[in-house]
Design a protein around this nucleic acid. Sequence first.
DNA 1: ACTGGCTCCTGAGGGC
DNA 2: TGCCCTCAGGAGCCAG
Length: 278
Amino acid sequence: MPELPEVETTCRGIRPHVTGMQIEAAAFHAPKLRWPLEPAWLDQLQDQTINQVRRRGKYTLLECGQGGVLIHLGMSGKLRVLPTDTPLVKHDHVELVLSSGMSLRLNDPRRFGAFIWSDLALDQHPLLAKLGPEPLEGEFTADYALAQAQGRKMPIKAYLMHNPFVVGVGNIYATEALFRSRIHPLQPAQSLTLTQWQDLVEQIKQVLRAAIEAGGTTLKDFTNSAGKPGYFQQTLNVYGKAGQDCSVCQTPIKTLIIAQRASAFCPSCQRAPEHLTD
DNA sequence: ACTGGCTCCTGAGGGC
DNA sequence: TGCCCTCAGGAGCCAG
């Protein structure tokens, strides 16, 4: 599933092939992804020049002259740049034909993703306006986190995935960062000390940076349809490892469902507050 | 102001 | 071999 590192890697991959190109034609091959693909957008897209490709949280943004495109990869989305005469494959829902003879295609089997044309400057768009800071930027600090978490009783695991607090930290990296910080996923967000936040914020940054580097080593060629998974999964300590032994203390990894999502943790390394112990 | 629950969708995986 | 059932999972949205 694409998380921030995968989206960043995708952004870097398509950027050289897309920046400065004109959109000669656009096509939708599905009525909707997460939201409807408005046919009226096809005319808006026509003849736009893509001035810039950038990322905000897990959104990929194509900045055009006025307005632009927001793309979210959801659970299963992939963006690829291919020669325009390459046959479409199943779940190719959106195609932008570029002036270079290449096409940008969004393929998304589960259709949890999004493709939206915005007349507004992209940062003004409602989906972006309320997003929290980027986890890898200086704005995301322990002091910021401590202040924001005041009055927040929700489990820290859920809070890390709460976009108004910080963007781009999905299930995998929230799970891994909590393990590295030895913090129990059910600990209320408001109860973390400054010391815990200092550690946790640092672990989030480290785990994301490491994943971006790993992804960057495998996804070099975005003109090639053969997308490979990143190597970062080899570095995971707890995510998807329920029942296996903790790499630090050999205690079996457990799983809890928190806010409808699987949360793996080591019951020995990540000590629970008394009343939360099962 | 917060929080929990619902929802979209398909492919993967287990059981038989 | 193949069919059916279950379920994961990002994040906006809404009700309580």
